[in-house]
Every structure is written in C-alpha cells, then in structure tokens.
C-alpha cells in the first residue's frame, strides 16, 4: 500500500494554523527554548537569538505563502 501526500490546500485548513500555533508555542518556550545555548553562532550572534529569529521567520513565511497562495 502506498501513501499519497499532497500539499495542495494545506494552508487553507484551519487545523493547520492551529497546529502551527501550538508548534510555535512549544518551540519558543521551555524546554525546547533551553536547548540552543548562548554560544556564538553565525556572525557571533548567540545561537538562542538565532533560533528565536529563525522560528519567528518560519511562522512569518507560512503566513506569507498562505497570503500569496490565495491572492
């Protein structure tokens, strides 16, 4: 049996945004947030700050694609 996955209309589902919201809250709170430390990352910026900005940007990107896909 083969499993077929499709991204079509994924962003149109209310459940997807709920999932993204929950994922965002989990990724940007303890204990996950404690994993990236304050060691220097790219351009000497601490990994923790890089991580927060990366997750933040990821959420923005999803919202951007949702807007672009439906406009």
């Amino acid at each position: 049996m083969t499993m077929k996955l499709s991204r079509d209309g994924l962003l149109e589902h209310g459940e997807f945004w709920l999932l993204l919201f929950v994922a965002g809250v989990i990724l940007l709170n303890w204990p996950v947030l404690a994993i990236p430390g304050f060691a220097s990352g790219p351009f000497g910026i601490p990994w923790r700050l890089v991580y927060i900005v990366a997750v933040w940007l990821l959420m923005i990107a999803f919202a951007y694609f949702f807007d672009r896909g439906s406009s």
Binding site: G14, W17, L18, L20, F21, G24, V25, L28, R48, L49, I52, W56, M59, I60, F62, A63, F66
Partner: peptide
C-alpha cells in the same frame, strides 16, 4: 536580556491564528 521578546511573540502567535 531577551525578556522583552515575549511581548512581540504573543502577537505573532495571535496573527498565526488570524484567519481563524
């Protein structure tokens, strides 16, 4: 330190639920 950031992460989460 980074304690100012939650004030802006909250609205970001809020907008993720914007369409709902």
């Amino acid at each position: 330190g980074l304690g100012f950031l939650p004030i802006y992460l909250g609205p970001t989460f809020g907008m993720i639920l914007g369409w709902l």
